[in-house]
Lab assay of single mutants.
Amino acid sequence: MTEYKLVVVGAGGVGKSALTIQLIQNHFVDEYDPTIEDSYRKQVVIDGETCLLDILDTAGQEEYSAMRDQYMRTGEGFLCVFAINNTKSFEDIHHYREQIKRVKDSEDVPMVLVGNKCDLPSRTVDTKQAQDLARSYGIPFIETSAKTRQGVDDAFYTLVREIRKHKEKMSKDGKKKKKKSKTKCVIM
């Protein structure tokens, strides 16, 4: 069974824990209790493949930012979460993405942009803004509501699919490099 290491990042209060708990335990946590770091595991079937999701729910508070490099190193894919009623959390996505790329030393890291709290009427981040940002990053965008469960499975499952595509691409690139290195030079 394939294991996928997913990391949920975003500013404090955007609903990272609520999304994760909704996926794992099928219930909505409405009281806000700032996370330092929590880890969850769940076995699911995605596109006919049974897999184990190892999900790291991270601290959004700035005082825990020193811990970010460590979990970013171990993560295979990242859910970059903002709240649709919090423009600052949307603007912060850029910083999370840049930090992930720096730590992973790669421009090509599996990510999904997630606009959470889409059940709320007080939207300050337009869907088109988020779609445009995701398009500019070359990553999928999904709106979710941890409260109603809308888009929750889709967000995590899409990230797994992005990781699969990335692994497939990397193995193809690896095979191309191996083929090239088999060419021999004969000096007579």
Rank of each mutant, 00 (worst) to 15 (best):
D154I: 04
D105M: 15
S17N: 00
A83P: 14
R41T: 09
G60S: 04
L79F: 03
I36K: 00
E107N: 08
D132Q: 05
H166L: 08
V152M: 10
E76M: 12
C118I: 09
Q22M: 04
L159I: 08
S39R: 02
C51V: 14
K167M: 08
A59T: 04
V114F: 14
V112E: 01
R97G: 12
I139T: 08
Q43K: 11
D47L: 05
V45S: 12
T35K: 00
S39F: 02
K178N: 06
A130I: 14
A11M: 13
D33Q: 02
E168D: 08
P34L: 01
T148Y: 06
Q25I: 15
K182V: 06
L19Q: 15
Y137C: 06
V44G: 09
I21N: 02
V8G: 03
M111E: 01
I187N: 12
M111V: 09
G12S: 08
V103A: 08
E37I: 01
D126M: 06
S136M: 14
I84V: 11
S89V: 10
V29I: 09
G13Q: 09
E3N: 04
R97N: 05
V186M: 04
T58V: 03
R161E: 07
V103R: 10
A66S: 10
K128A: 05
Q131T: 12
D105F: 13
L52S: 13
G15C: 01
A18R: 01
G48P: 08
D119V: 08
D154H: 05
V125T: 08
L56Q: 06
P110C: 04
Q129W: 11
V186Y: 15
L133E: 05
K176D: 15
K88S: 14
E3D: 07
I100W: 08
K180L: 03
D119P: 08
D126V: 05
E143V: 03
G10F: 03
K42R: 11
V160L: 06
L79I: 13
G174W: 01
K128S: 06
V14A: 12
Q131N: 11
Q22N: 08
R41W: 02
T183K: 14
I84K: 13
F82C: 10
D47F: 12
D119K: 05
L52F: 09
D38G: 00
K178C: 05
